[in-house]
């Protein structure tokens, strides 16, 4: 390729990606840098930002160490992400495998299982609050008929993994699992890409269905699992709308639903502390980067790429 051509090709390439470039500089990079600047300021959106140095970050550390709302928020976000992401991956794979079985009515099953993730978040939240009401909801009514306990679900500060009784976060996780269809669809597509010959060869060797799943399906799905793990974690950490709706806009009961994104929103738009909120946003960003980096580190051990990596 000649020099001229190379320059032309680059120009052409830039031309094609120019919409994104414009978006990147104006809607991502600029806000990103600006929020870094604000995080060193005191700012209420109305009067100009005033430089305060590392004060916001000092307060952030303070709030965390003294067990203030931020400490609750980090714990809640962590709990939600840590429990909901692995479960949604397992559930997504399970459902996808079932949906790949050639049975009658398969399209209908696919539609019905995907439908919950198309339902509007607000509608879903209202619906689940109704289902999970400890005294009038269908869930506890059913548990009662089965002779099981009566958890407080959204009304309770309890945590299944800590005290053994489900509370608000666990109800939130169940709700998230219900609308896990987007992941399911991705697994379904990936399952379709697995060459049939691999299973046929395994059958000739007399491998059981379970062994086939464990040694063929899972390894070949691992890149998709990895993708969903990363994206799912990021999504879980950013979840806002349903929590805002379900927790009276302030993380009720007793901050058991106060996640970082909600705390940040309240700090910014109720307490009018944009600088402090920006510092919190940066904390969130560093957290996400750290987790992603960790995930990529471990990926080498368990993600199996079929053929060449593009």
């Amino acid at each position: 390729m000649s020099h001229r051509n190379a320059r032309q090709a680059t120009l052409c390439g830039w031309g094609f990606i120019s919409p994104w470039l414009l978006g990147f500089f104006s809607l991502t990079l600029f806000p990103f840098v600006a929020s870094l600047y604000y995080s060193f300021c005191r700012y209420d959106l109305l009067s100009p930002p005033r430089w305060v140095g590392g004060e916001n970050y000092r307060q952030l550390a303070d709030e965390l160490v003294s067990g203030g709302p931020l400490a609750h928020a980090l714990w809640n976000t962590g709990y939600f992400a840590l429990v909901s992401v692995p479960l949604s991956i397992a559930l997504g794979i399970g459902l996808a495998v079932m949906l790949s079985w050639p049975v009658r009515g398969q399209p209908l099953f696919r539609t019905l299982l995907y439908l919950p993730s198309v339902l509007p978040i607000l509608a879903t939240a209202i619906l689940w609050q109704w289902l999970f009401d400890p005294r009038q909801g269908f869930v506890n009514h059913t548990l009662g008929l089965l002779g099981l306990g009566q958890p407080g679900w959204f009304t309770s500060v309890e945590e299944l993994l800590v005290g053994g009784t489900p509370g608000s976060k666990d109800a939130l996780i169940l709700m998230a699992l219900w609308s896990t269809g987007n992941f399911m669809v991705i697994y379904l597509a990936a399952l379709g890409d697995i060459p049939r010959s691999l299973y046929e060869a395994a059958q000739l060797d007399g491998a059981s269905r379970w062994r086939q799943f464990w040694h063929i399906t899972l390894p070949l799905l691992s890149p998709v699992i990895f993708f969903n793990l990363v994206m799912g974690t990021i999504q879980a950490i950013q979840t806002f709308t349903q929590i805002y709706v379900l927790s009276a806009g302030q993380g009720d009961p007793d901050r058991s639903l106060l996640v970082v994104s909600l705390h940040l929103f309240l700090t910014a738009f109720q307490d009018l502390r944009m600088g402090y909120a920006s510092a919190m946003a940066w904390l969130l960003f560093v957290l996400v980067m750290g987790i992603t980096w960790l995930l990529f580190r471990t990926a080498r051990r368990w993600v199996f790429y079929q053929g060449a990596v593009r």
């Binding site: 990147f24 104006s26 809607l27 991502t28 600029f30 806000p31 990103f32 600006a34 929020s35 604000y38 959106l45 994206m231 990021i234 950490i237 950013q238 994104s261 940040l264 929103f265 910014a268 944009m274 909120a277 920006s278 919190m280 946003a281 940066w282 969130l284 960003f285 996400v288 980067m289 992603t292």
Partner: peptide
């Protein structure tokens, strides 16, 4: 990499812009 960026991190300046 921009996919990893939480929307909260850019929310306020974006609003201003």
């Amino acid at each position: 990499a921009t996919m990893l960026l939480p929307w909260q991190a850019t929310m306020i300046p974006r609003f201003l812009l």
